[in-house]
Design a protein around this nucleic acid. Sequence first.
DNA 1: TCCTTTGGCTAATTTGAATTAGCTTTATTA
DNA 2: TAATAAAGCTAATTCAAATTAGCCAAAGGA
Lengths: 206, 206
Amino acid sequence: MDTKKKILDVALTLFSEKGYGNVYVGQIAEGVGIKAPSLYKHYKSKQDIFDAILDEMRERYNKKAADLNLDGNDILTDSKVYTNASEDDLVKMGTGLFSFFLHDEYECKFRKMLTLEQFSDKELAELFSNQYFDDPLKYQSGMLQFLIMQGKLKGDDADIMALQFFSPIYLFMTVCDRQPEREKECLQKLEKHIRQFSRIYKGEDK
Amino acid sequence: MDTKKKILDVALTLFSEKGYGNVYVGQIAEGVGIKAPSLYKHYKSKQDIFDAILDEMRERYNKKAADLNLDGNDILTDSKVYTNASEDDLVKMGTGLFSFFLHDEYECKFRKMLTLEQFSDKELAELFSNQYFDDPLKYQSGMLQFLIMQGKLKGDDADIMALQFFSPIYLFMTVCDRQPEREKECLQKLEKHIRQFSRIYKGEDK
DNA sequence: TCCTTTGGCTAATTTGAATTAGCTTTATTA
DNA sequence: TAATAAAGCTAATTCAAATTAGCCAAAGGA
């Protein structure tokens, strides 16, 4: 298969585990199954490999962002999927997002690499915040707003509700990134959280 | 002042910004105001400097942990501080924790360094999770439990309440670690969150 | 005061990782 | 089928960073 692609794949894996500075081109080559100098037939330097990974990240990110705002900019149209909004639906949505974060291979490596490089590069810091803070909050806020309009939930500040819904997901995600063995425990607590969230915002408004 | 201490201080600063692998002993020396070889009068290698920092971290962590459980293991005794638990008290407590995380110099560097090294070292991963997940949740859960017993708040699962109280603080902290310019925005949202949290758990039980 | 320790320096030395040179094989295509 | 390009390899080469050697000055205590 395509060596050029495979180099990026192996490199991303290594960068996400150890960080750019602690990965040697020899290790990348070994993972690919070639010798270090052969890498230079495909990329002109280690930095070049890193940049190519970034390009791919940006591209995927833009594509995903475009997907979410498809035909226009109205997030609400999407939210119809969740029209019923039973407690179980919210649980499914939250745990689904959590599991996607943790088990989608690319997502996972992407995030870990950003985690390790976020303080060195302003652009990466922004990319991280967009992907794991601004975008999810915006999206979920839209969704909750929609549910409120439908009368399925009560509340007067969908942004804060989104924050309260999402933050534990993020927190558990970071725990599992560094201690994967805690996934079960986190998943259970996450479910409890969402059920409580649901009960809270079903009952009252004020 | 004590060169040996200053080396650790400068090294921690650099490690927290770039990560161990991207810091050169020459940079540490420069920060201290000496030449690289002189470092070796104080520590026998770069790794030795890193280890000394870790030792200090562990020591501080243990001291802090001991402080929280002072004379015994009953967290509740501490919580008396927060006996009134007005909405404003909760806000003060939450934003205070947030500001401490962001502005205590040592705390901040410690956390950033752990962030960058968490995937390479199991012990560091644990230290991180203890300090920014397990311990705060345990502590706040105890506090909330106490407030519930006092009738100041209503709720039946203090652990989940603590999770809901704390997660946004953590999330905002990570945002500000990578984008310090967003602190004001985060602080405002944090306050809104806590006021809403307070209203929610004052009204109902169920 | 003299001797020893401490902590600094400059000038090597070592080490190891990144990159280049240049050869070889295989695949493509004119 | 001959020429060329693509992609691999081994053996240099380069380069920079970590560390060591060995000298020197100041501090401080017998």
